[in-house]
Design a binder for these strands. Sequence first.
DNA 1: ACAGCTAATGCCACTCAGTGGCACTGTCAC
DNA 2: GTGACAGTGCCACTGAGTGGCATTAGCTGT
Lengths: 206, 206
Amino acid sequence: MSDDLRELPLRERKKLRTRRALAETALRLFTEHGYDATTLDDLCDAVEVSKRTFFRNYRSKEDVALAADSDLWSAYLDRVAVAKLDGPLLEALRVALNATLEDMDPDWERRFLATRELSESVPVLQSHSLGYCQDTTRAMVETLAGRSGTGVDEPCLRLTVEIFVASWRTACLRWTAQGGQGGRDGLTDLIERTFALLPDALTCTA
Amino acid sequence: MSDDLRELPLRERKKLRTRRALAETALRLFTEHGYDATTLDDLCDAVEVSKRTFFRNYRSKEDVALAADSDLWSAYLDRVAVAKLDGPLLEALRVALNATLEDMDPDWERRFLATRELSESVPVLQSHSLGYCQDTTRAMVETLAGRSGTGVDEPCLRLTVEIFVASWRTACLRWTAQGGQGGRDGLTDLIERTFALLPDALTCTA
DNA sequence: ACAGCTAATGCCACTCAGTGGCACTGTCAC
DNA sequence: GTGACAGTGCCACTGAGTGGCATTAGCTGT
């Protein structure tokens, strides 16, 4: 995830630079002038690429805004695919998440916070972001089912993963609400506390 | 939710008929020819209204496809707003959901199943549908927080509602996968069984 | 029954997201 | 160098969604 940039062929380097410039500039423009008020033409002008090139790098306007989300989920999926995951599943998934967070690029944290704030104020981004979560959920269920030999329809497995994602989002929401306080350690801490609340959440009264 | 249609002023009746015709026809066209392959112009031609009228009835193409979802959630929110909700919150929410399902229009079930199938095969609909869930979650948390006097930031409350929605979606997924078998009773049954799995889901091992 | 009011609609022109096609250019392999 | 080809720019197009304004049609009052 960190700067593996210098040891790539020139062509790849340029491509990657464009990709990053697009995501970075998009985040800045969306934050400064608003998501709707920023057109893709604005973005492409700023990065000095054609709109066609934009769409070769990102599938949609929402996609580029949520690049930091995407980075996290794909890193997480990679980790889950190779991790040990012994003991209680929910706990193992949480540990893997913490490890993934620690491994993210130093700059990712800032991008992610900006992305979260944007996502919470723009409905279409929120929906799209939830779509990512759902895709990740599905992929995780498939990976885990394939490994343990049970089918993907095993309701308990799916439910566990859903609860995992729900907890993550709850923790993430609080982290964003407090302005990303404590950086990724703060986030890790919130995650831990949120997961600890789960048994209470099942039984708490109105 | 049932046919309160005959006792409305003519103008309102026509408006409602148009609304329903749009949702009904949209569902049919989307199912028969595919979501992307059906343009709003196609839909408007079929219903014989202008595109402008469409957008006065629904906010987007996704919205009209997910009308059955929206119907359920708004009925559910209405019920939660007035329900007693004593005892364990999660259980009370589930009971209220069952009651809402029973009260839905007889035709709703068919529309809902078609909507779910559509939503699972069209990513943008899935995202949009998750957005509805999220909006409902937020509204529920506000309602419940306002009633019990605690703040909306009460993490346990939000977590409970998130788990509720996650369980609902898991049950719903299975219901759709088995072709809506058993109608809404079948769905109610799946919901009950899914909620019963929750304690296991917290502790199950990989 | 008729005229006036107004909500709802239709129509038209527009913006912007996203796609397809084709020519071009810079990078890589030889 | 030179040919191959990935990546890019440019252009024209479709389709979602919006704003404005004229028109229709349902609800008044008399």
